[in-house]
């Protein structure tokens, strides 16, 4: 007892500081570092690209293309209405500046300048100029984190837009990603565009992912191709966060390979 009291009188300050340090580290761990990312956002506020710059970057040709897309969407909607299909409403996205990158070398992530205050939720889709970028995996009040599709744990259900051959895309920590097919003999060529497939539970259908640059169709167990991502992930400055509600599971296809492979897409816990 005496020894214990002697120890305490000697190390009380040290022990309590140590406990405090461990407790606060654990607290930050439980909060997914939300306070640190908030502070980071505040510190980098003067360095963030301003809104004027994003307007400058949007060239007039892009504006023209957008007009065309809107025109085509309206046409598409009217056509769908005439064939009595459910009209697809395009949800409104939130523009967000990219203020940081992954805090560890084994991950491919982005830090965005918008958070739950702007209506961003975990699971929202992130698109950039060129197409799909990733999905939101952590949110604090005014910043959020994106798992890029180039992360090696990321899986996206995808199809060849020309032939509709389906498979999934997995990242390999760079601008090039791998697509594996479910079919033994997929119809795919160099130059084909790859988009997200309708089977995907985590991404909306028809978003551009990339272009095929290399074929390896004799690969076992599944044929695979290499894609060049259409969104330039390493120089992104602005992205758009699109809210996404997963579609109701279709009763006819709960056990397709696409679905089972798509489900555990998020980071490992």
């Amino acid at each position: 007892m005496f020894a214990l009291r002697q120890w305490w009188s000697r190390y009380a300050l040290r022990a309590s500081l140590l406990t405090l340090a461990l407790m606060s580290a654990w607290g930050i761990h439980q909060l997914n570092a939300a306070p640190i990312y908030e502070l980071y956002r505040w510190v980098t506020l003067p360095l963030q690209p301003g809104p004027s710059r994003s307007e400058v970057l949007e060239g007039s040709s892009i504006q023209e293309l957008r007009q065309k897309v809107i025109e085509l969407e309206i046409q598409n909607r009217t056509l769908r209405e005439t064939v009595a299909a459910a009209p697809t409403a395009t949800p409104k996205g939130v523009p967000a500046a990219v203020i940081g990158r992954s805090a560890g070398d084994w991950w491919q992530q982005l830090v965005l300048s918008r958070g739950s205050n702007d209506g961003i939720n975990i699971g929202d889709i992130v698109a950039g100029p060129g197409g799909l970028v990733g999905r939101i995996i952590a949110v604090s009040s005014s910043s959020s984190r994106v798992l890029l599709i180039s992360d090696s744990t990321s899986r996206v259900g995808a199809r060849v837009s020309r032939s509709r051959a389906t498979g999934y895309v997995r990242g390999q920590a760079g601008q090039q990603v791998i697509m594996e097919f479910f079919d033994k003999m997929p119809e795919v060529e160099v130059g084909d565009t790859i988009v997200t497939s309708a089977y995907s539970q985590l991404f909306p259908e028809g978003m551009a992912i990339g272009r095929v640059v290399e074929l390896d169709l004799s690969k076992s167990p599944a044929p695979e191709v290499t894609l060049e991502l259409s969104a330039p992930l390493n120089i992104l400055e602005w992205v758009e966060v699109i809210p996404f509600v997963p579609p109701q599971t279709a009763p006819f296809a709960p056990e397709t390979p696409a679905e089972t492979l798509d489900l555990p897409e998020t980071e490992t816990p």
Partner: peptide, 21 residues
Amino acid sequence: AIAGFTLGLLQDAMTSHYPTH
């Protein structure tokens, strides 16, 4: 080792909980 553990927890918080630092 204790400093390593504490800072490891902090970096895990900023990335992901597995693999742990």
